[in-house]
Amino acid sequence: MAEPVLEIRNLNVDYGLGDRAVHAVRDVNLTLHRGEVLGLAGESGSGKSTLAYGLTRLLAPPGVITGGQVIYHPAQGSSYDVLALSDNGLREWRWAETAIVFQGAMNSLNPVHKISTQLMDVLKAHEPNMSAHSRAARAREMLKLVGISADRMDAYPHQLSGGMRQRVMIGMALILQPQVVIMDEPTTALDVVMQRQILGQLIELRERLGFSVIFITHDLSLLVEFSNRIAIMYGGRIVEEAPANTIYRDALHPYSKGLLSSFPALRGPRRELTGIPGSPPDLAGMPAGCSFHPRCPKAFEPCGSAIPVLGRPDTPDGAGRSVACWLHPAEQPVG
């Protein structure tokens, strides 16, 4: 397997401090490899966006990182912990190494500045020696890359459609050629046709430019199609991680199965959509043991008392995948 570019180790994120803190992300271990598309799926409130904000240190108060490491491996030079960077170091790391495309395509652009200004102020901040002329040239180039004609440079965000704005954001994310691009539900605000178009374009760009993607969504069927590996989150923990095809064919965790049957498959035979009974857990009052057990159709004795560890399952294809479920107790804990 390719070498890692981003390693999340035992990351914990809380909202609030002290006893009343809500643990939104707990003991997450996740590795993103070079050139890979890693999907992160889960219901609303499962902690997937918090994980993305946590690893880039963009959490708005009262969010706090209470523990863990985010090890970044730059293309050249030695690895470092993003969480230990100084403010200046962090500013330089952001966007240049890891860029983000956010959920709200409609609100990600500053309404009072032209898109050219917003594309170029990244360059101004990160490459201060660049001339104004080459900044403009680079901005035009990025717009062309995402299929927007250069005469839209002087457009204001409100003059663009939702799909165009999100493409501008993708172009902006790639302008410094980062190694990692985090996509936080990049297409939720768009219609289905636009979703496909933009994701297809993104995958094409990834093949051309070779960056890695962390793709966050609750739409598992989209992930199965577009990602290499998928990690499923529930109640702030990763409950299953496996190659995309493996999850699709043979998910082990009952929650993953539930998620899969909540979305219509893009291809293959018709099947009935079932959904998952109950609602996502209240992060402030997590059930004991496996947090999914109150909703789990297969819950049995140990589920209510002990938290299952994420580890290699006891199945024949156990290598290269991990699951946190008492049905498949870990042979070898990961992390």
Partner: peptide, 30 residues
């Protein structure tokens, strides 16, 4: 300050000053 484009501006690694003035204050001023 809670608008998405402010988070984006932070994520872009712009200086605190630029985010505060050109992104937040510029819109809040209207």
């Amino acid at each position: 300050a809670s608008e998405d484009y402010i988070t984006v501006a932070h994520a872009k690694g712009l200086s605190e000053r630029r985010v505060a003035l050109s992104y937040a204050a510029r819109n809040a001023l209207l």
